[in-house]
């Protein structure tokens, strides 16, 4: 891995929005992520799959700045953003959702979204009345509508059903209008109907933005993804189109074999 080849990958006009190179982290003796690298093409859906404990969420933590890698690099539109704090990454256009619902449970649903959309405003709006932050309010209301939560706007997020909370989780991640969106098992625990709706919604995001998706529902992965990265025990064991990955014997052994 040299700087030169890096440059080619980013600058070749292949419109790679997110680049991951040799990313690694150790927890004590455990190599949770070991030398993982791939590109997420702009406006496409790239999925990360793998058995439980493969290191998928840890990979997201590394990319989103939640934890620092022990080695490797992350690039956003070619710019090195390795180890940057989550708030700076968000400003650079990268947002994420969480596998374990991570909301402001004691605040109303609309307020969850408004806070998440506040970064769309100028900094000094933080000291103006909330009503002056028109963009944030409009964004929050549009997301309520898009995620079918309008009737619950005044409800506390903690009082929502599990499926509604999972939807709000995605909506909150979208509120800052990111260019790159990381979704960690967005459909986890959802009903079949909600899973299908969420799948359609994620599909509709492609083109608008670059999606990196962790998903256990293989049907959904196969139908949604443009590109699939397969992880097992911290390593990338395969990548390619959904069909190519499904046919890969290593993947079948490590992943589908378990399923």
């Amino acid at each position: 891995m040299t700087a030169a080849s890096f440059k080619t990958a980013a600058g070749a006009g292949s419109a790679c929005a997110l680049g991951v190179r040799d990313l690694s982290v150790n927890f004590g003796g455990l190599q949770a992520v070991a030398g993982v690298g791939f590109d997420a093409a702009a406006g496409r859906i790239t999925s990360v799959i793998g058995p439980n404990g493969a290191g998928k969420s840890t990979l997201f933590n590394l990319i989103s700045g939640a934890i620092r890698p022990t080695a490797g690099r992350v690039t956003l539109d070619g710019a090195d953003v390795t180890g940057q704090a989550p708030d700076r990454l968000l400003a650079a256009g990268l947002a994420r959702s969480f596998q374990i619902t991570n909301l402001f449970f004691e605040l109303p649903v609309l307020e969850n979204l408004r806070i998440a959309a506040q970064v769309l405003e100028r900094p000094w709006h933080a000291l103006h009345p909330v009503g002056h932050s028109r963009r944030a309010l409009t964004k929050a209301e549009a997301l309520l509508d898009r995620f079918g939560l309008s009737a619950k706007a005044r409800e506390l997020a903690g009082n929502l059903s599990h499926g509604e909370q999972r939807r709000l989780e995605i909506a909150v991640a979208l509120a800052a209008e990111p260019r790159v969106l990381l979704l960690d098992e967005p459909t986890q625990g959802m009903s079949h109907g909600d899973t299908a709706d969420t799948g359609a919604l994620i599909r509709s995001l492609a083109g608008e933005l670059t999606v990196l998706l962790i998903e256990h529902d293989i049907g959904l992965v196969m139908s949604l993804s443009d590109h699939v990265v397969v992880m097992a025990q911290g390593r990338k064991i395969a990548e390619g189109t959904p069909t190519a990955v499904r046919a890969d014997p290593a993947v079948q052994a490590a992943y589908f074999g378990h399923g």
Binding site: P86, D87, L90, V119
Partner: peptide, 28 residues
């Protein structure tokens, strides 16, 4: 009271509610 109801104060409320999520929404 004005300041606490402005986005500044509401960000503080978000910190109280769930500090870990706040950086991922772009706030330090």
């Amino acid at each position: 009271a004005y300041l606490m109801d402005a986005p500044f104060g509401r960000t503080l409320a978000a910190i109280r509610a769930n500090e870990k999520r706040v950086p991922f929404l772009g706030f330090n």
